[in-house]
């Protein structure tokens, strides 16, 4: 077995999955952040329409 080649192979797979996982984490964070803002905005809209 080509041991040196194995090192490159492992490095490549780690890079690939790191890129993909990193992007998924970023998307999840964006989604949760926006969901929080929606909750805050909706409660403001509700409060205002109740006051009116």
């Amino acid at each position: 077995m080509n041991v040196d080649g194995l090192g490159w192979l492992i490095a490549a797979y780690i890079v690939f999955f790191a890129v993909v996982t990193g992007y998924i984490v970023l998307l999840s964070w964006n989604q949760r952040d926006l969901d929080r803002r929606i909750d805050a905005l909706e409660s403001r809209v509700d409060r205002k329409s109740r006051d009116a």
């Binding site: 077995m1 080509n2 080649g5 194995l6 192979l9 490549a12 797979y13 690939f16």
Partner: peptide, 9 residues
């Protein structure tokens, strides 16, 4: 050798 397996992704 093994490094060719990068090809699959």
């Amino acid at each position: 050798g093994e490094v060719q397996r990068i090809f699959y992704f």
